[in-house]
Design a protein around this nucleic acid. Structure first.
Length: 489
RNA sequence: CGGGGUGUAGCGCAGUCCGGUUAGCGCGCGUCGUUCGGGACGACGAGGUCGGAGGUUCAAAUCCUCUCACCCCGACCA
């Protein structure tokens, strides 16, 4: 592994790419814009997945799987939806290749499909085509299905984890008898996303509503969790959509009510993706590399044994193994690095990989009944008695988890500005950056004008807004909403 | 799709302007030895269709033509 990463202050984008590749999270795939998630990165995704999967199951959702391929015509059923996704769809037009003397291998023109098939950019359309078959009566509702899947959006500019041509996510698709229930579901999921982000990823988020121009194509309303990265730009980390009756209309999904009338079904959809991994990297990372919150760290503790020869190695092993067994019994994820090589090298490597706690065990410790524990979140190093390790370490991991959220929140708050003049607004966006809270008159014209002039967009209309007495930052009209502007990923 | 750039060992690069021994360097990799509490060192070694095709020439990584790929910057996006 090459030494170090590009410092954040020098080039944040280079820092990000360095961390992702050097910490062994992901690599570039052979097709432009594709990503190979390497084992260490996938372990993070697995933990995120397990966590959220548990949350949705506790709230009555079930998993299923719908096909990757969708008839092209389905996409066009919902007008806004097609407009939103048509430009980035991969299309399957043929079903086989054949050998060619000159070019080696070519698409067999004989195999052209009657109806072309698209690779799902999201699954609303296939799912609602099926829901039409499955829903007849109010007794079939609510239908609360989720799937863990890959989707393809042919983006022009890609970045590992943040925006790749193919990515992994979960997409929930629910059907309800009433508008109220659908809204309740949308907000329930948003709350689960907030918990996932804050309680597990230690990533503080604003919750709220997207503006019309930023909402999902085909939704009535899009709610989101929005967070601040280390370069003060915003990351949309999860979205929960109230789809109203739009997809029910498009696919003719109706149900019979208790009093025997026919009504259109209400829908929601919601998703979080591998982008969350990128969010964790950019929320917590520093110039030494990754810093992982314990709850989603593949390894919560890395053990660096220090020894000279086989005899010393055995002494350390005999000394520490029972302690590690005890910790593992408590559910602590531990990695032991018994490789040959200098401890200093290993320290740096595991710091790069963001392991929350490092346990150093060497001859001095064996002699004195100690071990050295170093925290990744704040660099603290302390000597602990061997007997204290197995009860102290889980507690310290909790402390680290809390501290990382606190740090991230403090950073976000320190870089959030409340402004009342457009000059100040522009100065902040062009200069130090960060989130800007201000009044907005609620018009798309204002939103677009600000975007054109500054590149900042409305990230969220937060639930905790207080527009009373505010005027629009741009038009000077009375503010309809207090919103958060920022440059976004 | 516009503008800019780069393709030479696993990675990062030099060499190309001005053609000429066996194509180099750093990191990494392998073996052996000494090291080992904050990125150790030595010795030996493996590894190349110089992005691809065609051309000029006694001779091409180097010159010419064509082509492919990727990266960066702009218009779209979880």
């Amino acid at each position: 592994m090459a030494k170090g990463v590009t410092p954040q202050s020098k080039d944040y984008n280079a820092w990000y790419t360095d961390v992702v590749t050097k910490a062994g999270l992901a690599d570039y795939g052979p097709v432009k814009g594709t990503m190979v998630v390497k084992p260490y990165g996938f372990a993070m995704w697995d933990l995120i997945k397990e966590t959220f999967d548990g949350m949705i199951k506790e709230t009555g959702h079930v998993n299923a799987y719908f096909p990757l391929f969708i008839p092209k015509s389905f996409l066009a059923r919902e007008a806004e939806h097609v407009e939103g996704f048509a430009k980035e769809c991969a299309v399957v037009t043929h079903t086989r290749l054949k050998a060619d003397a000159e070019k080696g291998i070519v698409v067999d023109p004989e195999s052209k499909l009657e109806e072309e098939v698209i690779v799902r950019p999201t699954s609303e359309t296939v799912i609602w085509s099926m829901y039409k078959k499955w829903i007849q009566s109010y007794r079939d509702l609510p239908l609360l299905i989720n799937q863990w899947a890959n989707v393809v959006r042919w983006e022009m500019r890609t970045r590992l984890f943040l925006r790749t041509t193919e990515f992994l996510w979960q997409e929930g698709h629910t059907a309800h008898a009433t508008a109220e229930e659908a809204e309740e579901e949308t907000l329930l999921i948003l709350e689960l996303y907030r918990q996932l982000a804050e309680d597990y990823l230690a990533m503080p988020v604003h919750t709220g509503l997207k503006s019309e121009s930023e909402k999902f194509a085909g939704a009535d309303r899009t709610y989101c969790i929005e967070s601040m990265m280390g370069d003060k730009r915003a990351l949309q980390a999860g979205t929960s959509h109230n789809l109203g009756q739009n997809f029910a209309k498009a696919f003719g999904v109706t149900f019979q009510t208790q009093d025997n009338t026919e009504e259109l079904v209400y829908a929601t959809s919601w998703g979080v993706s591998t982008r969350l991994v990128g969010g964790v990297i950019m929320t917590h990372g520093d110039d030494k590399g990754l810093r992982l919150p314990p709850k989603i760290a593949p390894y919560q503790v890395v053990v660096i044994p220090i020894f000279r020869d086989d005899e010393g190695k055995k002494a350390v092993s005999d000394y520490i193994t029972p302690v590690l067994a005890d910790l593992r019994d408590q559910g602590v994820r531990i990695h032991e690095d018994w490789r040959k090589g200098s401890p200093g090298f290993k320290f740096n490597e595991w710091e790069m990989k963001g392991v929350p706690l490092r346990l150093e065990v060497g001859p001095k410790d064996v002699e004195n009944g100690n071990a050295v524990l170093a925290r990744r979140d704040n660099g603290d190093k302390q000597v602990l008695k061997k007997e204290d390790l197995s009860n102290q370490i889980p507690a310290i991991l909790d402390t680290i988890q809390d501290n990382m959220l606190t740090q991230a929140k403090a950073f976000r708050d320190a870089n959030t500005h409340t402004v009342s003049s457009y000059d100040d607004f522009k100065e902040i966006v062009a200069g130090e950056g960060g989130f800007i809270r201000c009044g907005w008159d609620g018009t798309e014209a204002t939103e677009m004008a600000i975007k054109d002039e500054t590149k900042a967009t409305i990230r969220v209309i937060p639930f905790d807004e207080n527009p009373k007495g505010l005027t629009c930052i741009y038009s000077g009209e009375p503010a309809k909403h207090e919103v958060i502007f920022a440059k976004a990923y």
